[in-house]
Design a protein around this nucleic acid. Structure first.
Length: 546
RNA sequence: GCGCCUGUAGCUCAGUGGAUAGAGCAUCGGCCUCCGAAGCCGAGGGUCGGAGGUUCGAAUCCUCUCAGGCGCGCCA
């Protein structure tokens, strides 16, 4: 296993402390960065500037003390002091090329780590009400949740993906009533649709389907039927989008097991419940919420929040290290009361991480596409997926930080023009495959591993630069996992492709020199492997031909 | 009024204490007798919304402020 830069600096500082060159015993957190400028080396550290106040010496003086000791490490080519006291470390080329051997050896396992060893994460996402099809906003949540799950798994976390089904309460009753009304209509009755009923075309479709199956209207409960129909449509959408769940948690099951009632009882026992104006309240303000919240309304019906506290209590009981909720940004007002509930039960609410998904603005050639759930004319995930394809759709959703607004241009996502970033990355993979195919046609066979002769031939500046990016893949996954930011993978891939394409244009892979050709072919394969692994984390395919 | 998110190139966005702030698109100019031109090379383009503060050093941290979005139900 290669020594990390951070270890090299630590070794040097500790050595300096041992022989008395440095007086302080303490070791500040070592920060290593990768300079953008080549002249600043492979790594640089600011540790001398951090030590300066405690040592009461000039930063540059301390820097040279440490640099002297870094220089003597075997993998270090040279080490310089620069600027106000930066230590710039230049490593031998062999330090970098080793990673190629690792990529070829590990294949699709390259990039995995154990950063999340023994840690369990439950990630709840989408959780759209089964009262209508998934819209574009749900799609973004699905893409982020699914990709984040993959990233967390790659970083060694145990991940459980859960979908919470709101199959209880007024919404599903309204869905049932809406379908019933449409059935009346289909049977020739005059109807007027109340304001709060669902008006989308899918309601009529369910009604028609029911009547086709049960012309005498003697089939199963209509509400139940409608809810199930919606749910299976949602599952189909997610399936086609490449998103799978481990658990489908039914809100109704909470009531069936009496968990809502028992949770409220528990809160009562803890003294967090009071009655006022005929309703039952949870004193969430005691735990930092803006206002107290109603659990049971004056009319006797419980609120959505009431089942949500039971649901989150069940989550806690399962003992995950971290709970992740992915919510639409319009739900951020809900965060305070959920945190209040965790605290009320005596839990550290930092186990809960909430990721807010900002809205998607759908455009066509730069012009906003009208969306309005009210009119039942919102754009569905299905429509977008059918139009632009699953890969482009997922890639676009992962091109931005989750909490940043996203402009999604349908024409851009579909275009096969260079301004479409999805293809830029996929093309890199296809191109590599094609190069290898070309070599095979010429009767060449790909070597199955690197040896020092091959590695020695990879000495171009561009090759080293690419290799450095390749060696940052594992770290990128780790950071992406720990910060819960899957979009980092997208950016990584665009960067990597952005290094490979120019390299390809400049450098001939299949040459007259057999050893050089072997080296470059295997090098290309390594790049292709990392591109494929990265795309897989996004849930985007890595085509061999486009 | 209170809370959350966002203000970085003409546009869309990266960059959560480091060195001369980056990319893509758009604009302009080049590259296919040679492994995929869905590609490459080059050029121009910036008071990082504004003002203070902390620091050797700030797009990044703190305070205030301006602008946009969202949320503040006995709705879900």
């Amino acid at each position: 296993m290669r020594r990390s830069a951070i270890d090299m600096v630590r070794i040097a500082v500790v050595a300096a402390q041992k022989d008395g060159a440095l007086k302080t015993e303490c070791l500040p957190g070592i920060i290593i960065e990768k300079p953008k400028k080549e002249e600043f080396g492979d790594f640089s550290t600011n540790i001398a500037m951090l030590l300066a106040p405690v040592e009461k010496k000039a930063p540059r003086e301390i820097a040279s003390l440490i640099a002297e000791r870094i220089k003597s490490l075997p993998e270090v080519e040279k080490c310089e002091v620069a600027g106000p006291g930066f230590i710039n470390i230049f490593l031998k080329r062999s330090y970098w090329t080793e990673v190629l051997e690792e990529i070829i050896r590990k294949g699709d396992g390259f990039g995995r780590s154990e950063a999340g060893k023994d840690k369990t994460v439950q990630i709840e996402f989408v959780s759209a009400n089964p009262t209508g099809p998934l819209h574009i906003g749900h799609g973004r949540g699905a893409a982020v949740g699914d990709s984040l799950s993959r990233v967390l798994k790659a970083a060694g976390f145990d991940v459980v993906r859960e979908y919470y089904i709101n199959d209880a309460g007024r919404q599903v009753r309204t869905l049932g009533a809406s379908v019933r009304l449409r059935m009346d209509e289909l049977q020739g009755k005059a109807i007027t649709i109340p304001e709060d009923f669902y008006k989308g075309g899918y309601v009529k479709e369910i009604a028609r389907e029911y009547l086709d199956k049960y012309p005498d209207v003697q089939g199963p409960d209509i509400q139940e039927y409608a809810c199930n129909a919606m749910l299976s449509a949602i599952r189909k959408d997610l399936d086609d989008f490449g998103v799978a769940f481990d658990e489908w948690f039914s809100e109704r099951s909470l009531d069936e097991k009496g968990l809502v009632a028992s949770t409220i009882e528990e809160l009562k026992r803890l003294g967090h419940i009071y009655e006022s104006e005929g309703a039952l309240w949870f004193r969430t303000t005691a735990f930092g919420d803006d206002k107290d919240r109603v659990l049971i309304k004056a009319d006797g019906e419980r609120t959505y929040f009431a089942s949500d506290i039971a649901y989150h209590r069940e989550k806690i009981k399962k003992g995950f290290t971290t709970l992740v909720n992915i919510w639409g940004a319009d739900h951020h007002g809900y965060e305070g009361r959920i945190r209040a509930l965790l605290k009320a039960f005596g839990h550290d609410d930092t186990v809960l991480k909430i990721i807010f998904i900002q809205l998607v603005a759908l455009l066509r050639n730069g012009v906003p596409v009208a969306m309005g759930k009210r009119e039942g004319e919102f754009v569905t995930l299905r429509q977008v997926m059918d139009e632009v394809g699953r890969d482009a759709c997922r890639f676009f959703f992962l091109m931005r930080k989750a909490d940043a607004h996203l402009d999604f241009d349908l024409e851009l996502a579909k275009s096969q023009a260079p301004e479409n970033p999805v293809y830029y990355v996929q093309y890199c993979h296809a191109r590599i495959h094609s190069i290898i195919g070309f070599a095979k046609e010429k009767g060449l066979t790909l070597k199955d591993h690197f040896d020092s002769d091959l590695l020695a031939r990879l000495d171009q500046k561009e090759e080293i630069e690419i290799i450095r990016r390749l060696s940052a893949f594992e770290e990128t996954i780790e950071k992406s996992a720990l910060n819960m930011e899957p979009h980092r993978i997208t950016f990584y891939l665009m960067e990597l492709a952005g290094l490979f394409h120019p390299y390809y244009n400049k450098t001939r892979v299949v040459t007259d020199d057999p050893v050089l050709t072997d080296a470059r072919l295997l090098f290309c394969k390594a790049v292709g492997t990392v591109v494929a692994n990265g795309l897989n984390l996004l849930g985007v395919s890595a085509p061999v031909k486009m």
